[in-house]
Amino acid sequence: MIQPFIRVDGPAAALPEENVDTDIIYPARFLLITARLGLGPYAFHDRRFRADGTEVAEFVLNRPEWREAPILVAGANFGSGSSREQAVWALLGRGIRCVIAPSFGEIFQANCYRNGVLPITLPPAQVAALSAAAAAAHPFAVDLEAGTVTVAGRPPIPFSVDLERRLALLNGWDETATLLNAYGADIGTFEERHRRHQPWLFEGENDA
């Protein structure tokens, strides 16, 4: 169900703004939609459209060069705010597979991994250089196997990703299945011990 991430090529959209929170990425009123797929049209909705529904032509994701960009070069603390996973699903719905930023909202970043989106953290100066390259419409290549971001014609920039996350992304593994397979027995053992230590946490289940 999760699309493996091996390598992504294409234009990168530059959004060099700090603290772009999950409300900006996915406005709360669209949380009424219960689907995971098809949320692309709502990504950055209130930046892309005016209140009267007309498009804001100058917003980067509305510009013809970056409408289909699979990569986003963002500012510090991207995806801060809430745990709403719709923010990631909406990016994915637009075909964005990779976000590069100096830092991320913590829950947002974890949600990225779970959905096959690669969040790359790089020092601010490198992100600024990448942002300028993105705004100049240079093509990007993000290679997870090699662990590099490359702007066409420049030396590759290495990035690091936690080993487990990297494997899960490369293989498109679902986190729940992976956990259950690897730790099913440990969970059972823990549960027995936990029941002895805090028995009240196991009282009256399901007659609540």
Binding site: I107, R114, T176
Partner: peptide, 18 residues
């Protein structure tokens, strides 16, 4: 602490989180 929707699914199935 707050978690994302996928994590809600993990907690339901595994009663655990990474």
């Amino acid at each position: 602490f707050g978690i994302g929707a996928s994590e809600c699914g993990t907690v339901m199935a595994a009663q655990c989180l990474k």
